[in-house]
Design a protein around this nucleic acid. Structure first.
Lengths: 232, 232
DNA sequence: AATCCGTGTTTTGAATTCAAAATTGTGAGA
DNA sequence: TCTCACAATTTTGAATTCAAAACACGGATT
């Protein structure tokens, strides 16, 4: 297995909550599961620590990072800036073909909304946001966006949405698609920022950090990874 | 030596050009110089590779990253976005004390300009930009800013400035301080963006990437790290 | 009963070792 | 002379090993 593979495999495990937030990272177990020795595993952990997904405690191992409310706040703030920038650039650079793809994802997402299919809705939603970033044609931006969104992914997609919030999100996405089709960079930047600001407010109001934190603690205290999350 | 120390020591060496862009990274040498074994060195290299400062070639070692014009373009584009965001946030959160500090750095910088002291000028300049980012009170933003500015540091501070450009830069910095003192976030964001856009144009016009690339190649081809840079 | 102390165990961090891959150097043949 | 092939050497990537640090458990002491 290649270094980058180990990193992304491990990153996925963290994002999936296979190792819950705050839980100690079981080096030994992971070595067996990934069939690698400690050396490449630890290399990957250092990389993930630099990304902010893992907490490195000198001489006492590493833990899956846990987000505080402040972290969520700050990450969303930066995410707003990155998506706003992406929106502006996308309007300058996006092809008609790419707009068509995003429009299709948008309509599919609206259908998911009508069906009340949250999982599919989130999938399409993510596809749209990522499409806009990709259309900015800036790999540096894409990279930072990936790393920031990775850290808030759990907050973003695990927090349940209230029906009124969902309705508003749909309206906002209408405006997003509209601005994109008009190639109104400034307008798109503004609506994206507002959209994410609202999402953030929703998440912080729901007390995500506390929920996630408790889940992590529970899993930690009885040394159980899989089932504790459900039990907590 | 702690892991983070190795990373930042190594990062400094790359930024200083001690290992020139494009040059092979001499694992053995660095182990001796830092008095560590290959394991922690390689851990640091993977982290720096994730940061974009090091290029990892499977089975053929690692090289100091070399920036293309496109890289410089993209990095500055993102940097514009980050500083613009920082400027907006700073205007909401900065204390009078912090403004005073930045104002002092500004005036010192203007004095450096009058003296024609480019090195000191750049030092103050950086202090101002970093001060604005710090005033945004967002560690996530600071982190991304650090990593992006690290990658373009050589381009930013090694490219010589033409006298007219320098004069304009001073004007722009007047406007920056002014917006900050008025706590005009939107205005500050705009002027910062323009300021960095101009800087980028200057650098790309000067053909930084080619210059840096040649320097790296020369150092690579005769296996010499230190003296080649000066000789090229 | 609660706390402190000491011993044995586990875990961590880093050096070393080892196999595989790439690179270099040399000589044979065109 | 130039090119190709092949052996020797070096370098890489990862497993193993080893010392030091943290941890866990038990017994002694107050």
């Amino acid at each position: 297995m290649l270094h980058e593979e180990v990193v992304s495999r491990l990153r996925d495990m963290l994002l999936e909550g296979e190792v819950p937030p705050g839980a100690r990272i079981p080096e030994r177990e992971l070595c067996l599961k990934l069939k690698i020795s400690r050396t490449p595993l630890r290399e990957a952990l250092k990389v993930l620590a630099a990304e902010g997904l893992v907490l490195l405690l000198p001489n006492r191992g590493s833990r899956a990072a846990r987000l505080t409310d402040k972290d969520v706040h700050d990450l969303f703030e930066v995410c707003q800036g990155l998506e706003a920038l992406a929106g502006e650039l996308a309007c300058e650079r996006i092809t008609d073909e790419q707009i068509k793809e995003i429009a299709e994802a948008h309509h599919a997402m609206v259908a998911n909304y009508r069906d009340g299919d949250l999982a599919q809705y989130y999938r399409r939603n993510r596809q749209i946001h990522e499409g806009i970033v990709a259309a900015a044609c800036n790999p540096v931006l894409s990279g930072l966006y990936d790393s920031v969104t990775a850290r808030i992914r759990r907050a973003r997609y695990l927090t349940p949405m209230t029906p009124p919030r969902w309705a508003i999100a749909i309206q906002e996405h209408d405006a997003i698609l509209n601005a994109l089709q008009r190639r109104d960079g400034t307008g798109l930047a503004h609506i994206l920022r507002a959209h994410l600001r609202h999402k953030r407010e929703e998440i912080l109001k729901a007390g995500f950090a506390e929920i996630d934190s408790v889940r992590g603690l529970a899993a930690h205290e009885n040394g159980n990874n899989e089932s504790a999350a459900g039990r907590a």
